[in-house]
Design a protein around this nucleic acid. Structure first.
Lengths: 229, 229
DNA sequence: CGACGATCCGGACCGGAGTCCGTTTAAGGT
DNA sequence: ACCTTAAACGGACTCCGGTCCGGATCGTCG
């Protein structure tokens, strides 16, 4: 299940010495394909395989939360340091475990048959994409969650609930025929502090543009303003 | 800055003995107000204040990442256990720090003057709400981020970038006039694994409904299908 | 084949989150 | 004022993620 093909998943963590990290964090979607593998030394490759297998075994037998770096190392009969060198951190390891299904999915929407792949009109592809992703997530949900620290809590934080409820209430008034409960989540997504931070600080997007995008989103969702577009 | 009013923020963590946690994780929005405070013992209240003050000082002087439970405890001349008993965990402490501005914001959109507060038509309130939230976030971004473990990474994970880029590309074809870069984030929000987990596992929402909501969202955003609504 | 340099290995080590439990103290009843 | 008890306290302890570095291995080149 290892290596090559489409986009791999691990983050670009690592230290200054720029280890030959095994997941080339690629780019340029659409063109796809990219067989880059730094080609590990024999022992390194062997250990990498062992580690993934061990991790998979742990997940299967005792759930994702049993996947502790030490436990994986022990299960694979390997030193703890090796796990970190290979995968960067816990997230990297879990992510690598998801790599296979990830790449299958990417292949499906980048080059598979319509309506998911190219060939269908964009709106239909969008519809198909979401549904496919929803179904895919249903499977390895546990892993996906485990790979993202503090993910369970995110939707339980009272403060956030209040904000979402408010959006939901306003939506109910504006578009009573819609599934406002779920719709509100999409709007919340646009206001996520982490997103704001990413866009304003890391991507230099000016606040004004964010506001404009929000207003546009609201108008689209509620069908307001520019009436029919 | 302590206590009472609108909704407080801390999660419902704590252990089985059900400590009289200071943030009553309330409910019933719209009705607002709720002066519930378990009324801590004198020493407890004193220490709580000390801790918040100490934490605030640490944030101000050395940034949010210096807010370590031990450091806060030391700064407040209090035992480490006390910090945990009072705030549950690090997230709870940071959240409590945000409580003040949080409540001010809640007050503004629950009962303040239009267009944020009641009185304006719902669509306008929605627009105002998002803009207000964007501006508010710009301030205590650092704290908000720190309060949510692993928040920085979320938008850097390569796998997620690929998915978003795909959505963005399809959007560009479907609604070339929109700010598809930003718009794609809203759609991604609806497909967030953590959200899927929350809805399907904790809220028992059937997958079919999620799919329907997605399709509806796509149609609204692209203006497709039901044409003008 | 032997030696050399680059790469990898492993486990000791560190710091911080969260738990536990014996001790102390506030508050209310007598 | 004193006694009782529920609550709060504090710091030692565990567990885990992540770092570091001396030593073992691999692969290559002469």
């Amino acid at each position: 299940m290892l290596y090559a093909g489409f986009m791999s998943t691990a983050p670009p963590p690592s230290s200054t010495p720029q280890e030959p990290f095994d997941h080339p964090e690629l780019l340029q979607l659409g063109t796809a394909l990219e067989g880059e593998e730094p080609c590990l030394r024999a022992d390194a490759a062997r250990n990498r395989a062992r580690l993934l297998e061990a991790a998979g075994r742990l997940v299967a037998e005792r759930g994702a939360e049993a996947v502790t770096m030490e436990a994986v190392a022990a299960e694979a009969c390997v030193g703890k340091g090796t796990v970190f060198r290979r995968f960067g951190d816990r997230t990297g390891l879990l992510t690598a475990l998801l790599d296979h299904s990830e790449k299958k999915f990417q292949a499906a929407f980048l080059g598979g048959p319509p309506p998911l792949g190219p060939g269908a009109p964009p709106v239909e592809r969008l519809r198909a994409f979401g549904c496919a992703m929803l179904r895919r997530s249903a499977d390895d949900l546990e892993l996906q969650l485990a790979a993202e620290p503090g993910a369970h809590r995110r939707f339980v934080v009272p403060a956030r609930r209040v904000l979402r409820h408010h959006i939901e209430m306003l939506l109910r008034q504006a578009v009573p025929e819609a599934d406002c409960d779920l719709l509100s989540h999409a709007l919340m997504g646009q206001l996520d502090p982490a997103l704001i931070h990413h866009l304003t600080r890391q991507c230099q997007v000016p606040l004004a543009r964010l506001e404009a995008a929000w207003v546009d989103l609201v108008d689209r969702v509620t069908g307001a303003d520019t009436a029919c577009r």
